[in-house]
């Protein structure tokens, strides 16, 4: 398959190794990978803050950059969720881009969903010894109903013991601009999430959205109780090398 990568703004700037590993895994599985130029962001940060027209222009840029792609895969339930959940609303008065948005929706996937539901390859032969817990990000779970795929991928990682995360359904308090706009409530939320991560007994925190993971691990570091944190892509990448 010819797969176009959507390097989300957060991974692009802060965690390029996540995007790169995603490319490597897809190549390893025999697919042609490209990264269309011009892509920058799904527009969610402006959209969630109420700046619809700014969000629309950024979204337009993203749609344009993937116009000729066959399949689009991104390392984030939140960004893919933005496209699926809000692009139709964003372009409701623009029939041309509404059609293009629906085209993008039809061909875009979050990484774990793509691997398990589309490629049917939950077992990448990865090995990784750790006691881990998994935080199910809200947008992946609730906007895209991605529940099983990440767990299936993790089940197949040899040596990985997955411990339940208490109150896993609770949002970590990131919420994009929420974290800086209402920082105190955000802090209270991440503090509770951190409590649950620590209570799980895991020495590794996994997720499929770097936004949430940056928030939780950032808090754990700040309170001097750091827990190693990885995107599932990073875990698979490392596990496949071993």
């Amino acid at each position: 398959m010819k797969v176009s990568l959507f390097a989300t703004c957060l991974t692009n700037a802060f965690y390029p190794e996540v995007d790169l590993t995603m490319a490597k895994i897809l190549k390893y599985l025999g697919h042609t990978v490209d990264v269309p130029e011009g892509q920058a962001c799904c527009g969610q940060i402006a959209f969630n803050s109420g700046y619809i027209s700014d969000a629309r222009e950024v979204a337009r840029t993203l749609i344009d950059s993937f116009e000729h792609s066959e399949i689009v895969v991104g390392p984030s339930g939140s960004c893919i969720g933005m496209i699926h959940h809000y692009y139709p609303f964003l372009f409701e008065n623009d029939p041309v881009y509404l059609a293009k948005a629906h085209d993008l929706i039809g061909k875009s996937y979050e990484f774990t969903q793509f691997l398990v539901d589309i490629l049917k390859q939950p077992d990448l032969g990865a090995k990784y010894s750790a006691k881990a817990t998994y935080h199910p990000s809200c947008h992946a779970t609730r906007f895209l109903e991605i529940v099983e795929p990440p767990l299936k991928l993790l089940e197949h990682v040899k040596g990985l013991e997955l411990l339940p995360l208490p109150e896993a359904q609770l949002c970590c308090g990131f919420g994009g601009t929420f974290s800086v706009k209402i920082p105190k409530i955000s802090e209270a939320m991440v503090a509770e999430k951190a409590e649950h991560v620590l209570a799980s007994g895991a020495d590794l925190l996994l997720g499929l959205d770097m936004g949430c993971l940056m928030n939780i691990s950032g808090y754990l570091e700040k309170i001097n109780k750091p827990v190693k944190t990885m995107h599932i892509i990073q875990l698979l990448g490392e596990g496949m090398q071993g």
Binding site: N12, A13, F14, Y15, N215
Partner: peptide, 14 residues
Amino acid sequence: KSRTLPMVASKSFM
């Protein structure tokens, strides 16, 4: 104030 932030990568993925 309440969290660390990773550094902007020396090279972006793009």
